[in-house]
Design a protein around this nucleic acid. Structure first.
Lengths: 116, 116
DNA sequence: CCCCTTTTTCGACGTTCGTCGTACAACGAA
DNA sequence: TTCGTTGTACGACGAACGTCGAAAAAGGGG
């Protein structure tokens, strides 16, 4: 019995109501995943291979799964590519200002480091 | 040569300017440590043994060290006890609204779970 | 001094994490 | 169909994590 469609197992995303803040914090507590999220805040939608991170493709897949399972990103398939977006509205509805505050904090830290 | 004073190795706290937001997120991404932080928001200062967590004393020591190393709490010695406080001002100066937003998100989640 | 309380240190255990290379599956184009 | 591109699945590896029990350190009180 073949899968109905989709690349492999269907992409699973938690319901907005089921997003766990501890999972979100854990997902964001990694520099590669933080870079993914910050990139997504600038560009609304990107294909997997276009993120400015320096890890192996299989590692990137792993990070996308962590973010997806935590409810931070949504991925949709389109032919050969997989497009990724931030679940900003879902996140904001459940945890107002959370993502914004965290990413802003990270940006602030990056700027203060750069400024010496 | 005995230690000058203090229980054992002196308590080390990172400078406010050196607090890393990724370390803070990691420190907060654990239910026991989140409970510690939430307890500290209600009570300004508490002794180690008085937190409503259900882990062994040595595990609690471990969690305090993670929070201390991340710059989330400050601990001071007083005779036989070790008093713990939140580094709210330092945290807020470096990452405005971060701790408050995260803890509020956690409270919100706890309430929504309780309400079913 | 001895004992009790508070908290730490150390070593151990199983689990999870971040990383990778290899193999492979799905799609588009030639 | 064959090839190249895109991205995944799987298995492996070392490191870090959360947990604990046993032992011990430091202080207070008798």
């Amino acid at each position: 019995m073949p899968r109905s469609h989709g690349r492999r197992a269907a992409l699973v995303h938690p319901d907005a109501d089921a997003i766990d803040v501890l999972d979100v914090l854990h997902a964001l507590a990694d520099p590669t995943r933080m870079t993914i999220v910050r990139t997504l805040r600038a560009d609304p939608e990107r294909a997997c291979g276009t993120f400015p991170v320096d890890v192996a493709p299989s590692t990137l897949t792993h990070h996308f799964r962590v973010l997806r399972d935590a409810g931070v990103i949504r991925q949709r398939e389109d032919g050969n590519r997989r497009w990724t977006t931030l679940r900003l509205e879902d996140l904001d509805a459940r945890f107002p200002a959370l993502l914004d505050t965290i990413v802003t904090a990270y940006d602030r830290q990056a700027n203060s480091s750069a400024a010496g």
